[in-house]
């Protein structure tokens, strides 16, 4: 109950923020919510199932290009394009999952990393349609759904809010279900979970596909809300970022990925205003965090104050 209250409270708070935030922070929060959805999907696999992927950018990109190419070449309506992006991500997740789940631990990290690199290069190879690294812009008229212009600040914010809320509540519900508890059991001791009669392979595969689909939804939303599709989002850097956000906010907590994404953005944004050496500040902050809050923000709260936090 407390958990449901807390997360519904966050959803409500974010909706209320729409009406009070100054324009700049309003826009920032819209972007942070989209990226936090990505991080939340990542956390499902990393934080709850214990599978560290270094290739999630391929799923984000699958959603981004699934939606972006759908709009550009098939003239899809943005709503359908979002679905196309999610489907592309889920399919890629299924294919990668079937292969990569033969491995575990560091080998899983490397296999996902390499599939993601192949995806990134594939996007460059298909430059005739994707325009490679330069990418392409989705123009205003291509981003109107049901008469709503996704380029409008208010509509963008509410769309991002809807996506993030749906993902947050989905994951919150999932981890309280038996299926979610099996994932945690796999994380803690896969051998034991298997001995208890669970088909751990199937559970892990489902987690990969769902995590990939959520990442793809975020990628598709980014393309549609911010009007740009580019190969940078398929690069290694965008696989490492969700890991960083999740570790910062608290792996294996539902609220952590959002906190981590938000904090990381403001850390860089504020530090860059103070000094050109803002990466130095960010680096120091990360080192200090590992020294003094090793479980991430939400993880520390759970450890010290609120053991009930999901």
């Amino acid at each position: 109950m407390r958990a449901a209250g807390l997360h519904l409270g966050l959803v409500g708070l974010l909706l209320a923020a729409h009406f009070v935030l100054p324009a700049y922070h309003h826009g920032v929060l819209a972007r942070v919510m989209v990226l936090a959805a990505y991080a939340t999907g990542y956390n499902l696999l990393f934080g709850y199932t214990g599978l560290l992927s270094l290739g999630h950018a391929m799923f984000f990109a699958a959603g981004m290009y699934g939606a972006g190419l759908g709009v550009r070449f098939l003239a899809l309506d943005p709503g359908l394009a979002l679905l196309a992006g999610v489907a592309a991500g889920a399919l890629l997740g299924l294919a990668v999952g079937l292969l990569a789940l033969r491995t575990a631990g560091v080998a899983f990290m490397i296999v996902t990393l390499m599939f993601a690199q192949a995806t990134h290069l594939g996007i460059l190879l298909a430059g005739r349609w994707t325009r490679g690294d330069e990418g392409f812009v989705l123009q205003g008229p291509e981003r109107v759904v049901l008469g709503l212009d996704l380029g409008d600040a208010a509509i963008r914010y509410l769309a991002a809010w809807a996506l993030f809320s749906a993902v947050l509540l989905l994951v919150l519900r999932l981890v309280s279900l038996p299926a979610g508890r099996v994932l945690v059991a796999i994380r803690e001791n896969e051998e034991r979970a298997r001995l208890l009669g669970y088909d751990t392979r199937a559970h892990k595969l489902r987690a990969v596909v769902l995590s990939a689909a959520i990442a793809a939804a975020a990628g598709a939303a980014y393309a549609l809300l911010f009007g740009y599709v580019g190969a940078t989002f398929a690069s290694v850097q965008y696989s490492i970022l969700p890991l960083l956000w999740v570790l910062l906010g608290g792996a294996g907590t539902v609220i952590g990925p959002f906190l981590g994404t938000l904090l990381m953005f403001y850390l860089i944004d504020t530090a860059s205003g103070l000094t050109p050496a803002y990466m130095l500040v960010a680096g120091l902050a990360l080192v200090l965090l590992t020294l003094f809050a090793p479980q991430g923000l939400a993880g520390e709260v759970r450890r010290r104050l609120a053991p009930w936090l999901p």
Binding site: L280, G283, A285, L286, L291, P294
Partner: peptide
């Protein structure tokens, strides 16, 4: 000081990466 914990080491060395690169 973080007892070479695997996950914390990843974050700490990402931090180190930023510091070394920017420096």
């Amino acid at each position: 000081r973080i007892a070479h914990d695997p996950e914390r080491t990843i974050v700490a060395t990402i931090g180190l990466l930023y510091i070394l690169q920017q420096a």
